[in-house]
Write a protein that binds this DNA or RNA. Structure first.
Lengths: 241, 241
DNA sequence: CTTAGTTAGATGCATACTACACATAAGGCA
DNA sequence: TGCCTTATGTGTAGTATGCATCTAACTAAG
């Protein structure tokens, strides 16, 4: 049997298939606080609860492409850090039908987050509160600006928790932290990102030294403007060849 | 509109769906070498190449359950460490049709690996050679006992590389290393596991201290038997409460 | 023009961790 | 009994980290 003969006999519709979707955790910093962008569900199921932006994966669309499409259509942005997180496949995740969802983590610098909120007015910025530290894992709360807990739809609380676990885990050995910053930034801003993500305070000189020794920071020679005190040097992220 | 009215109107067959599968990287140690279990494909497509054991995800089956089923049906084993790796969704991964595959990593102690080879005679033990170190990532070679490079089917070389990247990354901050050992083991065996996975040699006293200070090792009071020299203490993995 | 206030950036020191060399312990075996 | 081999323990040096403190650079108030 040749390969083309095999293909001719193969029946692609032999088994019923789960639907395949992507869900995006859009994370950024807003006023120094870790923030996720959520959509309030107007329709059943889970009407009135908050959900991660998502969409189905087209038959001729890669997973990454589906995630980029959601980023564009539901948040009006592009060009941000995007990485696959985990795939959620519990049987009753969605009461409509069997849907397996590939979760993605998108990291937005403050400007991209503001842009998304402007272009997609239905998005809501929810402050993220993580009551556990380090490797533990566990529940994560999404809070409205007034501090009310926003109930999440489907298993999106699990996805959000997984996003935080991953982000915290990767923060200090990888370069994801820079994905939350604009192109030029000060060491203080970098430290603020780390502190917001980790939910701790960090020692300034130690953090400084560690970051500079990494070899990822290129001084630009430029200075921060608009301060009433000594202006900080602006750095640029330089992937260490 | 109530939720049940909504569900009644929802058409689950509105869009064509990708097929969903799981593929398993079965990894273990054999004669001190890192080894993966592969199947030689007899049929098209990719006949004659080596593939990871896999299977389709049933419509009422979770992803984990599908992985466990593959472990049982294609390797005849159960109860080993199993974790989701990454989901591969390139368009032409499989020439038959669009198949999205959720890759899993299974870690087998030497006994489980031997059991799998016995119960599933079509499985082949391939030595894994990783030419990069640390965080780099890149190609990984599967070698026959005679040292010939085994060509892998589909995108399974990518999956294997991802498995090695993940395993190396997790090895020294998590407890995955113990998943490759029997219940009782010596510190030397633990070090052998780490050395085989990382592809390096490690300093013995330093490794020893680090592991003992972790608080994961409980001495059993038993000694290794059958050596012609000082027998080593046998330890047990004790998850740190 | 001077000084207070504020944050950036640098330095010194104590502590913890790790690599590495080397010493000692405990088995079998000739 | 002594030798060989590997397990296990100890000491030391170099490195990374936490923390206190010092100096620099800027604005604004007077």
């Amino acid at each position: 049997m040749t390969e083309s003969e095999f293909l001719a006999e193969y029946d692609p519709a032999a088994y019923e298939r789960p639907a395949l979707a992507v869900d995006l955790v859009l994370l950024g910093l807003r006023e120094g606080r870790l923030t996720a962008l959520l959509l309030k569900r107007e329709q059943h199921p889970h009407a009135g609860r908050w959900a991660l932006p998502g969409g189905f994966v087209g038959i001729d669309q890669t997973l990454d492409a589906a995630a980029i499409q959601v980023l564009h259509e539901k948040a009006g942005i592009a060009g941000v850090h995007l990485e696959q997180l985990y795939t959620f496949g519990a049987l009753a995740r969605d009461p409509r039908m069997r849907i397996v969802s590939v979760a993605y983590l998108a990291l937005l610098p403050e400007a991209a987050l503001a842009e998304a909120l402007e272009r997609a007015p239905s998005l809501v910025a929810a402050r993220i509160e993580v009551p556990w530290s380090g490797e533990a894992g566990g529940d994560v709360a999404a809070l409205s600006p007034k501090g009310e807990v926003l109930p999440l739809a489907f298993d999106h609380a699990d996805i959000l928790a997984m996003a935080m676990l991953r982000l915290r885990g990767k923060l200090d050995y990888s370069d994801v932290g820079f994905a939350l910053l604009p192109e030029h930034f000060t060491l203080r801003q970098l430290q603020d990102v780390h502190e917001a993500v980790l939910g701790t305070t960090l020692n300034k000189p130690a953090f400084r030294r560690r970051m500079l020794d990494r070899g990822w920071l290129a001084p630009t020679g430029l200075r921060e403007a608009g301060t009433s005190f000594r202006p900080a040097e602006l750095y640029r992220f330089q992937p260490s060849r």
